[in-house]
Structure formats: C-alpha cells, structure tokens
C-alpha cells in the first residue's frame, strides 16, 4: 500500500509541477491545488498506513483496542487541507482580479511590479 501511495504521490507532484511551469496563471492555480494534495499525501504516507481502522477509541475503553491508523499525520493534514483551501481561494481571487486589471493571464505580460527596462537606481544618499 505504502509503495503504491509513494508512486501516486510522485505522480501528484509531477503533474502539479508541470502545471505550475506553465505561463498561464490558471494552469498555475490548478497546479497549486494539486500540490496541496500532493503534500498532504506525503505527510500522510510518512506516518505509515493502516487500512480502514480510524483512530477512535471504542466507548468505555481507555486505549485503542486494536492497531489503529496513526492519528498525528491525520491531525496535521486536516488543518492543512482547510488552510490549503483558504489559500487556494485567495489565489483564485487574485488570479481573477489580476485578469480583470491587466487583461491577460500570461505571466510574461504581467510586468507591473518588475517592468522591463527599469532605470538603474540612483546613486547618492
């Protein structure tokens, strides 16, 4: 299971990085969305995998009675999913607004912050 997950995670990374290398911000956005899944899977798989037994202690017991899935990466990933979503939503709105402002989705044409042929900074004090 873990080996399969490792290979799948690699595929997630490859796809997300390929998308992020695009010049179009929508592709980059999709890449970021997939990247968050890739990272979550990495963390999750690193905590080792136990099939189908959630980390929940049965009623009336003080400890898990059988081998349960590792709760720690789950807790980490759970917040990561929500934060990644918040981040994704922010990026989406950013993309949306920059498209409205600049009328392009090509990163090569987005030169507001670093315009081409900027003059050299002044010398002196």
């Amino acid at each position: 299971m873990e080996t399969a997950m490792a290979i799948l995670t690699g595929l997630f990374f490859a796809v997300s990085i390929y998308l992020m290398l695009s010049r179009h911000i929508i592709r980059i956005l999709l890449g970021v969305a997939i990247l968050s899944n890739a990272v979550n899977l990495t963390i999750f798989t690193n905590g080792r995998i136990t099939r189908e037994v959630p980390p929940i202690i049965p009623e009336g017991k003080a400890f898990p009675v059988e081998a349960v899935a590792n709760p720690l990466p789950q807790a980490l990933v759970l917040t990561a999913i929500v934060i990644a979503f918040a981040f994704f939503a922010f990026l989406l709105v950013l993309v949306f607004r920059s498209y409205q402002e600049l009328g392009t989705d090509d990163t090569d044409e987005m030169r507001e912050a670093e315009p081409p042929n900027e003059p050299a900074p002044p010398l002196g004090y």
């Binding site: 080996t3 490792a6 490859a14 990495t42």
Partner: peptide, 18 residues
C-alpha cells in the same frame, strides 16, 4: 523533464523514508 524528475525524486524520497 523537470516535472518528471521532481515527481520521481519525491517518490524515491518517500520510499527511502518508508
């Protein structure tokens, strides 16, 4: 190439950790 290499890298890294 970059994407495949990094994907492969992560897989190897994960396997090594596991």
């Amino acid at each position: 190439a970059i994407a495949l290499a990094s994907g492969a890298g992560f897989t190897l890294l994960l396997l090594a950790v596991l």
